[in-house]
């Protein structure tokens, strides 16, 4: 495993600790790959500048 790959796995472990999610060692590469994929979508979502009055589209009918 390269140093970069090792760093990415370490980051997944740290993020998982934040949400109290123990990730089995066998799953780490798959989770890391999926997280990297999701981040390409996060980057696109965050690339758009929205006006402050554009609120989140939560669905809640009291």
């Amino acid at each position: 495993m390269s140093e970069t790959e090792q760093d990415q796995i370490t980051e997944v472990r740290l993020l998982a600790r934040q949400v109290n999610l123990p990730i089995p060692v066998a799953c780490l590469p798959g989770v890391q790959a999926n997280l990297a994929f999701l981040r390409t979508h996060v980057d696109l979502v965050e690339s758009v500048s929205l006006p402050d009055d554009c609120t989140p589209a939560y669905v809640f009918t009291p």
């Binding site: 997944v12 998982a16 999610l21 799953c27 798959g30 989770v31 999926n34 997280l35 999701l38």
Partner: peptide, 9 residues
């Protein structure tokens, strides 16, 4: 693996 990655966002 997809669900776990989603939980980390």
């Amino acid at each position: 693996d997809r669900l776990m990655a989603g939980a980390l966002l």
